[in-house]
């Protein structure tokens, strides 16, 4: 009776089943990749000039801020929360930074201030959510209102940025040749943020705790994980990303305008969801969100190629979002039945 019985459950055989037993949560990411490829293929077949280095390089350049926002948003959504403030915080930090630079402050001092401002907004949301049981939706909504109002308080009109370093981020093109691939420092920043985000989520305790909280906050707490600190930090990450997006977007437009980024929070959430992150938390990847932003950017490009009204972008994104959400819903329903 004292011998320990043995439970052996063999890993499923076969590449596909083994993969599914271990990495089922990557399936939505692949779905997004497939979608991206299909859009590209269809557009290339139709226009013939989509798959050019110039167009694809421009995708990264035009959506650099969105990549950064999507990374931050992924952290928050993985915990099961949501951050509606990112577009407004991006606008406010951009405005504030631009006004400081207009007053002659060097960009080396301004950029850290912008990041700190973003962090402060994230922290405020986190505190409301964590300490006062405010729903993330409402807390981040308040932050969104506040940031938007503050952006207008800085100035009702756009502020031109003449700081060389900021403009350099955008104007420098590291090019492989004329008419060939290029990348701007803003693009590099965006890719770095994606890389760092992915590594943090995969290889740090902070990152894993985020997944655990998203899987079951109660379990995470009972397991003795630092739930409070981690959730606060997730919102701070999103805030810092919004601040950084403010820097990048200011560089991109060469000016700050208080109306920047209206509706961007929705684009960001849509991109994250299309990239395979479950809104209920606990499942998803930064890389998926990157794919989601690419899908978003490609649709935007295709629609401008078509010369169609840009309202079609939102309609298409809405339709795609719907498709992905319904698919997610089916996946969740099936795994629940098991």
């Amino acid at each position: 009776m004292t011998s320990v019985p043995v439970t052996t459950e063999k890993a499923p055989t076969g590449v596909v089943r083994r993969f599914l037993s271990r990495r089922a949560s990557w399936v939505p990411v692949f779905a997004a990749v497939v979608l991206l490829v299909v859009i590209f293929a269809a557009a290339q077949a139709y226009f013939g000039n989509i798959l050019t280095p110039r167009v694809i390089s421009a995708l990264l350049l035009d959506n650099a801020y969105l990549f950064i926002l999507a990374v931050g948003m992924t952290f928050v959504i993985l915990t099961g929360g949501i951050d509606l403030s990112v577009g407004a915080v991006m606008a406010f930090t951009g405005m504030f930074g631009a006004s400081l630079m207009r007053d002659g402050m060097p960009s080396a001092a301004v950029v850290p201030i912008m990041l700190l401002l973003g962090a402060a907004f994230g922290l405020a949301i986190g505190v409301l959510v964590q300490y006062f049981d405010v729903q993330p939706f409402i807390a981040s909504l308040a932050a969104m209102f506040a940031a938007r109002g503050l952006a207008f308080m800085v100035s009702l009109d756009s502020i031109k940025v003449e700081d060389g370093a900021i403009l350099w981020l955008q104007s420098t093109r590291l090019q492989a040749g004329v008419g060939s691939w290029y990348i701007t420092p803003t693009g590099i920043i965006a890719l770095l943020v994606v890389l760092v985000g992915a590594l943090v989520l995969a290889f740090t305790r902070f990152g894993r705790t985020i997944y655990a909280i998203g899987g079951s906050e109660q379990s995470a707490r009972l397991m003795g994980l630092p739930v409070v600190r981690t959730k606060l930090l997730a919102y701070v990450v999103s805030g810092v990303c919004a601040g950084l997006a403010g820097v990048v977007f200011t560089a991109y437009t060469g000016a700050s305008y208080p109306l920047n980024g209206i509706g961007t929070e929705l684009d960001t959430i849509a991109a994250v969801v299309i990239g395979g992150t479950l809104l209920t938390g606990g499942s998803g990847y930064v890389v998926g969100s990157m794919i989601g932003v690419f899908v978003y950017g490609t649709i935007k490009t295709v629609i401008s190629f078509l010369g169609a009204d840009q309202s079609w972008t939102r309609i298409s994104i809405g339709a795609l979002l719907l498709m992905f959400v319904v698919v997610q819903r089916v996946i969740v329903a099936r795994s629940n039945r098991r």
Partner: peptide
């Protein structure tokens, strides 16, 4: 009270992962 969205190994080691 574990996290079913994570792997078996991770559930055993969460918070005590080998770094």
């Amino acid at each position: 009270n574990l996290c079913t969205n994570l792997s078996v190994g991770e559930n055993v080691m969460l918070g005590h992962e080998v770094r």
